[in-house]
Amino acid sequence: MMLEKGTKAPEFALYATPDQKVKLGDLKGKNVILAFYPADWSPVCSDQMSLYNEILHMFDQYNAILLGISVDSKWCHMAFAQERKFHFNLLSDFEPKGAVAKQYGVYNEEEGECERALFVIDKEGVIAWSYQSPMAINPGADGIIGALENLQQVSTSK
């Protein structure tokens, strides 16, 4: 089952570059968007990651950092990110394969890939919103933006 709103986001540390890991706990104080996706190198124009790459400034307005996650290796991610000019980290859930995706309940055993799933985690490390999209459908970013907007409203009304 996919982890839902109100659950503490499981900790992880995954490679973002060949020699650098990103640890979720280090991002406390920021909202974190986790975008699990099946595989690098999906078609360009409808590509979900290319869309997110264009709106990093919108995420930034909500003090949110985006992390893409798939089971591809760190070298594959590096080539993919360079070719597509991505300005955010792609994390490699590679060894043990899909371990983080399994913790979040979004690993597809049949395909051996992450599901296409989104999580917005608040500044305290609690899941504020999650959404799983059908494998072949690019979920866009409106759900993420909506969730970030809600978080902002909650924190300003406190």
């Binding site: 979900q48 290319s50 869309l51 709106i55 919108m58 690019n138 866009g140 970013a141 409106d142 933006i145």
Partner: peptide, 13 residues
């Protein structure tokens, strides 16, 4: 245009 598109659910072109 772009931001309104994103909010309206545009996910690609």
């Amino acid at each position: 245009d772009f931001e309104n598109g994103v909010r309206s659910g545009v996910n690609g072109t």
